[in-house]
Design a protein around this nucleic acid. Structure first.
Lengths: 220, 220
DNA sequence: GTCTATAATTAGATAGAC
DNA sequence: GTCTATCTAATTATAGAC
């Protein structure tokens, strides 16, 4: 079953279907994140994945289908990173426990934003203008996330743990404050000389957000 | 000196040099904000300004020059909106007064972000990747803003007025939390059904930011 | 499955009539 | 100054050899 190997080491090794699809997806995330849907070119995406431009149309139906597949992949990673977090707890649960869970969620989200800045880059690009892509992404992936955060925040507000911000506004305050340093990591390096992807930076950032958003949280 | 009027009302009226330059600049801000530098097309910019595409190269040297002029214009508006705010006060000044000034700055910045979302849209687009445009914009306009906020924040930290966040991080927390609802206004409308450009939304948002960032501020 | 060649469209920029 | 026409280069997508 083995295919003939290339004549000698000079030729690029042939990759499996799943390998090249994954490489194209990850390249697409970086390019779409950096330049947006219209600004990204399929040539640049292919080149970054060490593939040729027509392979995109072979492995995916179109540029739009590639974008969709890339976003599917990325939200799958987010779901993995958030797995096990249950913000909507049974009504008799200790609300202080919910506060700790929310704080844990903030830390995980900050870590994810640092590790995968493409997610928030793409969301910021798409969120500016009404489009089919925005509607699909919002209804499919963002809405459940938004709803879960909103209902948990409501209970934390009533318990006096949360800062005095209504839940709709809180969502954007949280996401904006949690993601901008990683979305704009190039600017951060230029402006501060520091690297926002350093573990110490990420931890301090997350601690700060927990402190300002959950001032009524018991520490220890 | 009056030019001949158009034969009758059907023809588009000829605009003055300054009028058409301004129309092209404002159109450019919207397109660059929505799609980024590479994603925006000069044809779309011209069309939105009710002009023809070659007029861009007549009134501006190139697409890049148009971008630069548009950013110059926008930061000019920001400077106007912030005019009179003096964050770096003489050493013997009352530090509580500095807290009030900082709070006022937050409110003005939120209002500006709501009124001119293009500023933060463009900054988010450019901040993702190192480029000559990013370097120029950061050194020319962002650095002074960043430095002023940083030194004021440092004094507010020492006075126990500011939330426990170091000043580098604070800058991105503040800008991200203050701008995202307006940068992504389309998504906000889809997700919440509310309009973030409504005065009540803006005021509540700014109040929330002041409350979480300056917990030691004296109210009243 | 991969790769070369290329079709069809659109991009930014320029020339020249008016 | 404006506008039509057009140039060159880059875009997404397809066809067909291997």
């Amino acid at each position: 079953m083995a295919r003939n190997p290339p004549p000698n080491g000079t030729v690029r090794t042939r990759r499996s279907r799943t390998d090249i699809r994954r490489a194209l997806l990850e390249s697409a995330l970086i390019e779409f994140g950096a330049k947006g849907f219209d600004g990204a070119s399929t040539r640049a995406i292919a080149q970054r994945a060490h593939a040729h431009q027509p392979q995109i149309n072979y492995h995916f139906e179109s540029k739009a289908a590639l974008w969709t597949a890339a976003v599917d992949h990325l939200f799958g990673l987010l779901a993995e990173a958030m797995h096990g977090l249950v913000l909507r707890q049974p009504t008799d649960a200790d609300v202080a426990q919910l506060g700790q869970t929310f704080a844990d969620g903030i830390r995980r989200f900050v870590s994810f934003a640092a590790e995968h800045p493409e997610l928030n880059q793409i969301m910021v690009h798409e969120g500016t203008t009404a489009s089919d892509r925005l509607t699909w992404m919002t209804r499919t992936y963002v809405q459940p996330f938004f709803n879960g955060i909103g209902s948990a925040w409501q209970r934390l507000l009533e318990a006096g743990i949360a800062a005095p911000i209504d839940s709709d506004t809180l969502y954007y305050v949280l996401v904006g404050a949690a993601s901008l340093p990683y979305v704009n990591a190039s600017e951060v390096r230029l402006l501060t000389g520091r690297d926002p992807s350093a573990p110490a930076w990420i931890a301090a950032h997350a601690d700060g957000l927990v402190a300002i958003l959950l001032p009524g949280l018991e520490t220890g």
